[in-house]
Design a protein around this nucleic acid. Structure first.
Lengths: 212, 212, 212, 212
DNA sequence: TATGAATGAGCCTTCATTCAT
DNA sequence: GATGAATGAAGGCTCATTCAT
């Protein structure tokens, strides 16, 4: 919101601008826009205006709208993964690590909701644009690998049964997707969902039924 | 499967029926298209062609593309809700009912994947088009109410602690969203996710940690 | 110039228009524009405006600007070839036939200068746009074949030496290109060039030098 | 052949010379580009890149793309005219001089095809850009004057009939245009066309018909 | 002299929608 | 009901050109 540079609106190179700054701004602005409105609905003009430049200037930094999207994806995935990695750094065991990830998710959702929101909506955009598939799959594989490593770590520490690796991984993917996609609107809602997932993992979400 | 409207030569049939058939076809075709490619990317021409008519003819059935989308939403929500209601009909207790819903979800995802896929992607489309919000909120409220009733039923039957109503409801919303949005690509994947959710609800997803 | 239909500028289908007429008008208008300004410089908007429609309506008749160009090429080539064929119909011998073609060229250049001008400039446009090559080569092969047949006919009637077939064909191509490309601006200039070519073919353009 | 400006490290050389080198390089590179793709299709960036500089640097040498084009035209016309003048230097009579010009054309087409190709395509570009007309007409007048002088020389030496001056001049213009525009693709083709024109001028292209 | 960052104008094309038939 | 012809608005992108450095 406070990103808008004073719109110079004058020809030629603007005084005292840093190329890297502009690129960073574009990436941030674009992430928010893509997260809110998706790839199709977001126009170059919107992104450019919010970044304080003209649509044509976008092409100075990214060869096409699609490339910009891919760059945003890569940047976001990278940042989130770094946060996750750092979050589990001095934590051991599957459950503690998963909870650390959930907590970090919640923190990130507070600091910059566009990170999670983007990752939540990217799935849809990618599904809708077959051209994206290849471009983002490297990044997504990295995220997959990360989650898999958490589960495998759980197997080692004993809280995940070796035979249930796939099941647990599926649970992680499903809940994280659900959290990111559906519950990131308000802080309260997000916090509640995080608690719910934790409770479920701990096994005390609902009363244990007497196993007949 | 055959999407093209059958040629209307069944003698004696009132013409109104053909009209209703065409409307039905449009709705089905549009649901699949919106589910696959989203509101923006799907064009009237695509829908019309697949329904065997011209884009202009669409306007005899729906006043605008937006109205068509809303109609599809209503229709889909209604059908899914009917299936859910029927699924829990002779089942008692929160966990059994939730499991029944998950199973029904899985069945539906097999029979006509476009139902779930549409509901999965509608969230994004609605978020991206503020105009939709009002139109779909009635339908979404109905779904909310349904889930709330399941949880309340759980409180009555005793397997949901009264103080955890909100928590459990959040879990239902989160996992169902995650299931629909992220795990509906293949039957196998969907089945696994359903099992994972069930295990989590039963409390035996991971090894119970010794409660100190 | 007098092609402009009353600009309806009203939405929906305009009353009493014939699709075939509009297509014909577009083709004619486009030929003139392409001939004058070339493919790149001519804009869809110019063509549309001169044809009394909007740029978007162009796409009702031709899938792209390139396709329109190819259609104009085909149409023009066909019409010119028809005139040439008719011109040599009851004439025998290479020289008489070549002269008939030159005369017909001159007549056409008077009636509708855009035919020749287009054919003159198309060579350049095709050279500049590799994508055109394939699309127009069928038409150009037909023209080639026609000229070749004239020369071969000359061999049969005896006024072209069999060993000079290639040479004569080259002369026909060179002069006709030169005529169309460089001398079609004014009627007088064109007529003079036609006379010059005829004189050269007759062998009395310049005084015969005493062959030492 | 090597288009890239040599690195300017020859000590003691006045910097002005490097500047002149760069200008020369731009002119050469631009001629080839304009010849191949025409004024519109050729971009400043292409020219600059091939000349080893940036688009902005172009503006240190030429005030605009249009001016660059005009400069290329002037330069090319000048060089070709110089070659032509030299070619007819010690030749007398219209036919021998015309043949000398044709031979020189052929030689030039071999050495640097871009000279002829540029001159062949310039006609079209000028016709397409009314702004060029005035700028190039001085150069073209010089070329015209040259050809006129050849013909007048022919009148003096007696091989051109005084009454046929205009006719012969038209022939020269037409064939030279045809040669440059249409037959300069391959050496073989060009050579054949040159021979054909020579034969026509000599009067023995086709069998002389019995003049009744 | 040269570069990199930026602009403004304009182009081709797509699309929802309208209207006469 | 349905179609085909047309529109207006908008979008992504390219390009010559400008200006601070």
């Amino acid at each position: 919101m406070s990103r808008v540079k004073k719109s110079s609106s004058r020809l030629g190179r603007p005084p005292a601008t840093d190329s890297a700054d502009t690129r960073r701004t574009i990436l941030d602005v674009a992430r928010a826009a893509f997260a809110d409105r998706g790839f199709e609905v977001t126009t170059n003009r919107e992104i450019a205006t919010e970044a304080g430049i003209t649509p044509a200037a976008l092409y100075h930094y990214f060869p096409s709208k699609l490339d910009l999207f891919v760059a945003v994806h890569h940047d976001t995935q990278e940042r989130v993964l770094a946060r996750f990695n750092q979050a589990i750094n001095d934590v051991s065991g599957f459950v503690p690590r998963f909870e650390a990830i959930l907590d970090e998710s919640h923190r990130m959702n507070n600091e910059d909701p566009s990170l999670a929101r983007f990752l939540g909506s990217v799935r849809v955009d990618v599904a809708r644009h077959p051209e994206f598939e290849m471009a983002v799959q490297v990044d997504q594989a990295a995220m997959d690998t990360f989650f898999r490593s958490i589960v495998d770590h759980g197997v080692e520490t004993g809280d995940v049964d070796r035979s249930r690796r796939a099941l647990v991984l599926s649970f992680v993917a499903t809940t994280l997707t659900g959290l990111t996609t559906g519950q990131s609107a308000s802080d309260r809602q997000h916090a509640l969902a995080v608690e719910a997932i934790k409770a479920a993992v701990r096994g005390d979400l609902v009363a244990r039924l007497p196993q007949v």
